[in-house]
Design a protein around this nucleic acid. Structure first.
Lengths: 253, 253
DNA sequence: CGACGGCTTGAGGTAAGTCAATCCACGTGG
DNA sequence: CCACGTGGATTGACTTACCTCAAGCCGTCG
């Protein structure tokens, strides 16, 4: 399998063969597996190495004083867990593996050197961070101004687009190993209400979701329900993309 | 008045006198005033210069298809409006002046050079971006898992801390020129309900808010109501800060 | 003085939450 | 191979936080 980190960044920039080789090398240098439901990073931890998701699914989350949990973002293959490594003293939130997940571990020092050597990498990292910001902003819009139905639809549609970009879909179907409770924690609602909302979307023929497989049966319809406007994902560059996969992601936006 | 941009960054790093002079020069090179309620940047716009808030107050926002507005962040003096300039094609949201606001305008080209020359600046920019991310994440927690009272309290307390850091408070009082409608759009609620929530906080003796002046009469109480945990603001460095102002900000966190 | 923007109040409605029971698929051990 | 336990999904009945609509108020400015 291709290096998903490089693949993601090549959405934005392009590397020379030499650079690509270097990235592959770095990624294969040290890897670590995390079982489902275990922390990759914990709030308060001091980190001095970067974690890049290679396979599986993870989530950024916080636990409140009263025990409630809020999931702030899902991390798919190619995503960097801890861009703050270079700068901040400690993690202000945790990252958990939702399914069995494999990460590449890159020491901060190595990363720093790499950024200096490969300027395209520095640019791609900045681009990734800017889109992370944009995704978080969109999530705030979701929570602040969309109702449960729109919010769930929006999240699912966004996930579809991101999985497509990562090349991890078959048609409009893909493995999305989250429980309804986790989805509820991501959308800021109750498991009970999330369940009823999903049922609605199913009844309308928009989605199917069984056995951790999410099938978007009516992408256009879902997009409409979600009031989805893709500009915040900044995927424009895929339009001039060379691969089959990113072309198809482009169709969705 | 000192250059608030440099001041903000010196929360994190320190500059030589020469570098400080250079920053001051850049900031004074070109400035622009924006009247209250006008856009500094608009969604869809292609930008090739950076805007740094010098005085006043601004907000990032989006307008939905149905006309509703969501404010995603407040920008205070020292904040950079458009870090995406270097990378993204166009704005995916707008930035509006809430009060009369003055910005420094820095051409992207100049900024790029500056970043290359002054490596402390590049680090500080990265730090600023990481804390912006953290603030957005906290806003998602607000919306997803806190009720109206906690959410408003949290927002107000955060604003207090940020104003303190910017050195713009007298005691625990400061000018916060937003209407209740804008506060409602930031907290994802109705103006009516926001009004009642503010009344509660007032009745409990936690805040006073008249004539655009916000007075936090019981910071400790407000912090408790907000379930506020300051770690996400990453202000630790202020503890070894040299100025009076940042010392006092440190007390709050 | 009148108009206007922003704040406040009241009455009633609804989306979403709470609590608690049931169901279902799956894995495990007797 | 079946009984059992367990984690997750589903359902129902009831409550509530927040919304909606609509009127009134208050200070400011022309």
């Amino acid at each position: 399998m291709r290096n998903p980190w490089a693949m993601k960044m090549e959405q934005f920039t392009s590397f020379t063969d030499e650079q690509r080789r270097r990235l592959d090398e770095i990624v294969s240098m040290r890897q670590k597996d995390y079982a489902a439901r275990t922390d990759i990073l914990s709030e308060g931890e001091r980190v001095d190495e970067c974690h890049v998701i290679l396979t599986g699914l993870a989530a950024r989350y916080k636990i409140l004083e009263n025990g409630e949990r809020q999931i702030m973002a899902f991390l798919v293959p190619g995503d960097l867990c801890d861009a703050e490594v270079f700068i901040l003293e400690e993690m202000d939130h945790s990252v958990m593996a939702l399914s069995d997940t494999r990460c590449a571990i890159i020491p901060a020092k190595t990363m720093r050197e790499l950024l200096r050597e490969v300027s395209a990498l520095a640019e791609a990292l900045w681009w990734g961070t800017m889109t992370d910001l944009a995704v978080l902003r969109e999530r705030i819009v979701d929570h602040g101004r969309r109702n449960a139905r729109e919010r769930v639809a929006h999240l699912l549609y966004e996930v579809l687009v991101r999985y497509r970009v990562a090349g991890a879909t078959e048609g409009d179907m893909f493995s999305f190993p989250v429980t309804q409770e986790e989805l509820a924690d991501a959308t800021g609602m109750t498991p009970v209400h999330l369940n009823r909302t999903l049922q609605h979307l199913r009844a309308e023929g928009l989605i199917e979701f069984r056995n951790k497989m999410l099938n978007i049966t009516d992408p256009e319809g879902l997009k409409k329900v979600a009031l989805f406007n893709s500009n915040y994902l900044h995927l424009k560059r895929t339009e001039r993309g060379d691969s089959e996969v990113v072309q198809r992601a482009g169709d969705l936006v």
